[in-house]
Amino acid sequence: GSLMYASIFGNVSAIIQRLYSGTARYHTQMLRVREFIRFHQIPNPLRQRLEEYFQHAWSYTNGIDMNAVLKGFPECLQADICLHLNRSLLQHCKPFRGATKGCLRALAMKFKTTHAPPGDTLVHAGDLLTALYFISRGSIEILRGDVVVAILGKNDIFGEPLNLYARPGKSNGDVRALTYCDLHKIHRDDLLEVLDMYPEFSDHFWSSLEITFNLRDTNMIPGSPGSTELEGGFSRQRKRKLSFRRRTDKDTEQPGEVSALGPGRAGAGPSSRGRPGGPWGESPSSGPSSPESSEDEGPGRSSSPLRLVPFSSPRPPGEPPGGEPLMEDCEKSSDTCNPLSGAFSGVSNIFSFWGDSRGRQYQELPRCPAPTPSLLNIPLSSPGRRPRGDVESRLDALQRQLNRLETRLSADMATVLQLLQRQMTLVPPAYSAVTTPGPGPTSTSPLLPVSPLPTLTLDSLSQVSQFMACEELPPGAPELPQEGPTRRLSLPGQLGALTSQPLHRHGSDPGS
């Protein structure tokens, strides 16, 4: 009898404990919600809404976190579960008819179910419309201010047509639940991603989709105040780019002037030289400038040598048109050559190039014969006009050509200096018209024969001689050997007369 009593008592207590286990969990969670309300000092109306929603959600799901349970299964099984949970929507909604099984599984994985109690606001006026909503159960109302403009029910759709707008718009009203509602919502990016994977279904979906109420604000059109608020930074940046392009296009129409201050000032006329910023005076940081632009901040801005204009002085008759350009485009679109090309026009420029290279940067340069637009006047290309890779490749080509020119210049200078040193070592320090008596009659020769300089066969020296023939050397430049009979510069000019005159010897006659 005691054994029977113990078994009955144990079973009854276990049954009672299981009955009250759900209630215990409910009270535990309710205590957490109330502690949250007390800690954050939530006001009474919002506090009442929180408690009511918790009670309804507990009775609806029995305190089970559906998302946590669903995430515990593998992905393939999750797709089947989501397809079952959203079967009513996918079967009865017209846009989803005719979709393949794979497309429906992908869509079912992207849908999220939302449960809303009465009085809950789903979308506020001015919120971004980031999702498309399908009503599965219940009814909602749409308000503009305090005026109800629409009441939607089961199988209705609200949001915005995503295929017509590249960016999400703003809501033009509040969406509030009238009863307990079940909503299926899919985010904008998720829907577009699935439709991109199934393009054959995309056309059918957009053609058959009928949005019951379009929440997009109709005033959000390009150029409206609301649109400016939504895309303020983007609009200002776009206007700045367009104004920069218009100014650079105007600059290219004036090829007669070359400016070292950047493309923003290349198009300024002579009357605007004294102004601080020219056409860019209202925004000094709008356009890029070269490193020399920092010198323009000092006094005497109108007389600054940074602004270059072609000189009108005539060229000498024998002067060549100019050196070879550094870039391939210089032959086609440049009416002034790079300062480095002028360094190779003569030997005198070679000796004085490194010492006063900055001073020569603004000297007169030889002109190319074609009066085409200036290379320095070409505006900086924006990322939309020329690819970045093209600019980098041009810079690399320019750097390689500069290296080759520097190597060639160093070799030419070394060769010229070597020839000058050899000339100085071969010439005796001094010569006299009267020579010392020699031991015999073989001493009648006034000077030792001097062998002429070897013929220069280097390509670089031939180019130097060509430049010497075309360029007029300055007075202080050293002379180079030329073709024809060679003669030492330090010898007297009348050596031929010395050989014809008898030598005057000093000596005593033994017979006297």
Rank of each mutant, 00 (worst) to 15 (best):
G126I: 01
D127Q: 06
D127S: 04
L129N: 04
L129I: 13
T130E: 11
A131S: 12
Y133V: 05
S136Y: 11
S136A: 08
R137K: 13
R137D: 13
G138Q: 01
S139N: 15
I140M: 05
E141G: 08
E141A: 10
I142N: 01
L143G: 07
G145E: 11
G145I: 01
D146W: 01
V147A: 10
V148E: 03
V149T: 04
V149C: 06
L152P: 01
N155D: 09
N155W: 07
D156T: 03
I157R: 02
I157Q: 01
F158W: 01
F158I: 09
F158Y: 01
P161I: 03
P161L: 02
L162V: 10
A166I: 06
A166F: 09
R167S: 08
G169V: 02
G169S: 07
K170C: 12
V175L: 02
R176P: 02
T179Y: 01
T179R: 03
C181Y: 01
C181F: 01
C181K: 01
H184E: 06
K185E: 11
K185S: 14
R188D: 02
R188N: 07
R188I: 14
D189C: 14
D190K: 01
L191Q: 02
L192N: 13
L192T: 06
L192D: 03
E193M: 10
E193K: 07
E193H: 12
E193W: 07
L195R: 02
D196E: 07
D196Q: 09
M197P: 02
Y198I: 01
Y198C: 01
P199N: 04
E200K: 04
D203L: 12
D203N: 11
H204E: 08
W206R: 06
W206E: 03
S207L: 07
S208L: 07
S208I: 03
E210S: 07
F213T: 03
L215I: 03
L215G: 03
R216L: 03
N219A: 12
I221T: 14
I221S: 12
S224Q: 11
P225H: 09
P225W: 12
P225V: 09
G226Y: 12
G226E: 06
S227G: 08
S227A: 12
T228N: 11
E229D: 07
L230T: 12
L230P: 13
L230Y: 12
E231I: 13
E231K: 10
E231L: 08
G232I: 08
G233N: 15
F234N: 11
S235I: 13
S235M: 12
R236Q: 10
R236C: 10
R236N: 07
R236E: 11
Q237A: 13
K239Y: 12
K239I: 09
R240D: 13
S243W: 10
F244C: 11
F244R: 10
F244V: 10
R245I: 13
R246C: 11
R246M: 11
T248C: 10
T248H: 09
D249Y: 08
D251R: 08
D251V: 08
E253H: 15
E253D: 11
Q254F: 12
Q254M: 13
Q254T: 08
G256C: 12
E257C: 13
E257Y: 07
S259D: 14
P263F: 09
P263G: 15
G264V: 09
G267T: 10
A268F: 14
A268M: 09
S271I: 12
S272F: 13
R273K: 08
R273Y: 07
R273V: 05
P284Q: 11
S286C: 13
S286A: 06
G287T: 15
P288T: 06
P288M: 05
S290M: 13
P291N: 04
P291V: 05
E295T: 15
D296G: 08
G298F: 04
G298Q: 04
P299S: 12
S303Y: 04
S304L: 14
P305K: 12
P305V: 13
R307Q: 11
R307C: 07
L308P: 10
P310Q: 09
S312G: 10
S312R: 10
S313H: 01
S313K: 09
S313A: 11
P314A: 10
R315Q: 09
P316N: 13
E319K: 01
E319C: 10
P320C: 11
P321I: 15
G322L: 14
G323R: 09
G323P: 08
L326S: 11
L326F: 09
M327W: 03
M327A: 10
D329G: 12
E331A: 12
E331Q: 15
E331T: 08
K332H: 10
K332N: 12
S333Y: 07
S334H: 11
C337S: 09
C337M: 08
S341A: 13
A343I: 07
F344L: 09
G346M: 06
S348E: 10
F351L: 10
S352R: 06
F353N: 13
F353K: 13
F353T: 07
G355H: 07
D356T: 11
D356W: 13
D356K: 10
D356E: 14
S357T: 11
G359M: 10
R360I: 12
Q361G: 08
Y362E: 08
Q363D: 04
Q363V: 07
L365K: 11
P369A: 08
A370F: 09
A370K: 11
A370I: 15
P371Q: 13
P371I: 09
T372L: 10
T372W: 11
P373I: 06
S374T: 01
S374D: 04
S374W: 05
L375H: 07
L375W: 11
N377K: 13
I378V: 10
S381T: 08
S382G: 09
S382R: 06
P383V: 12
R385A: 08
R386T: 05
P387V: 06
R388Y: 12
E392S: 05
S393R: 08
S393L: 15
S393H: 12
R394Q: 11
A397W: 04
L398M: 15
Q399L: 11
Q399E: 04
Q399C: 15
R400M: 10
L402M: 04
N403P: 03
N403F: 15
L405D: 03
E406T: 08
E406Y: 03
T407K: 14
L409P: 04
L409D: 04
S410M: 09
A411T: 04
A414E: 11
T415I: 11
T415R: 13
V416Q: 07
L417A: 09
L419E: 05
L420H: 09
L420N: 02
Q421E: 14
R422E: 04
R422M: 05
Q423M: 09
T425W: 14
L426W: 15
P428T: 08
P429R: 13
A430W: 10
S432L: 08
V434P: 10
T435W: 09
G438T: 05
G438V: 12
P439L: 09
P439F: 15
P439S: 13
P439E: 13
G440L: 11
G440E: 07
P441R: 09
T442Q: 12
S443V: 06
T444Q: 04
S445W: 15
S445A: 09
S445R: 08
P446E: 06
P449C: 05
P449D: 11
V450R: 06
V450A: 06
V450W: 11
S451M: 13
S451E: 14
S451T: 08
P452R: 10
P452F: 11
P454Y: 05
T455L: 11
T455D: 06
L456E: 07
L456D: 11
L456C: 09
T457F: 11
D459M: 12
L461I: 07
L461Q: 12
S462Y: 09
Q463W: 04
Q463H: 04
Q463L: 10
V464I: 10
Q466K: 11
M468Q: 11
M468A: 08
A469P: 07
C470I: 05
E471C: 12
E471L: 10
P474Y: 14
P475S: 11
G476I: 13
A477T: 08
A477N: 04
A477V: 11
P478S: 08
P478R: 08
E479H: 15
E479K: 09
L480T: 10
P481Q: 07
P481M: 12
P485S: 11
L491C: 14
L491H: 11
P492T: 11
P492M: 14
Q494H: 06
Q494T: 11
L495D: 08
L495E: 10
L495W: 10
L495K: 09
G496Y: 13
A497W: 14
L498Y: 09
T499R: 11
T499N: 05
S500C: 11
S500N: 08
S500R: 09
S500D: 15
Q501A: 12
P502A: 12
P502S: 11
L503V: 10
H504A: 12
H504Q: 10
G507T: 09
G507Y: 13
S508K: 10
S508T: 05
S508E: 12
S508Q: 06
D509V: 13
D509I: 05
P510S: 05
P510G: 09
G511Q: 13
G511T: 07
G511E: 08
